[in-house]
């Protein structure tokens, strides 16, 4: 099981702050594709790869990052701290 966490407008548009899933995807990109097939909300949220970032086990990761050892994957828009 992998915990997915959503922040900011991604959380609002999907309608939940997170969920646990079973996946056979081997990379972040494959997982995104899998999520896009779930329903139209996910499809729309994850349609533009340039509009969001991903963290694997609380570290920023690229879309081709492998999911081996991934326990927590977070999706969020570009950060606006400071």
């Amino acid at each position: 099981m992998i915990d997915l966490i959503y922040f900011s407008w991604i959380r609002e548009r999907i309608g939940k702050s997170g969920e646990s899933i079973e996946t056979k995807s081997s990379t972040v990109f494959e997982l995104i594709e899998e999520l896009r097939q779930k329903d139209t909300r996910y499809f729309e949220v994850f349609s533009d790869l340039g509009s969001f970032r991903v963290a694997v086990n609380q570290e920023l990761a690229s879309f081709d990052a492998p999911l081996i050892g991934a326990k927590e994957i977070a999706f969020f828009p570009p950060m606006t701290g400071g």
């Binding site: 922040f7 963290a55 969020f76 828009p77 570009p78 950060m79 606006t80 701290g81 400071g82």
Partner: peptide, 26 residues
């Protein structure tokens, strides 16, 4: 530190203006 906190620390700002909210874009 300021430059990195702005775009690498996981914070997201939302502004509420005249009762309407929007997420601040990077």
């Amino acid at each position: 530190l300021m430059d990195y906190l702005k775009s690498r620390a996981p914070f997201w700002k939302k502004e509420v203006v005249n009762g309407k909210e929007h997420w601040v874009e990077a």
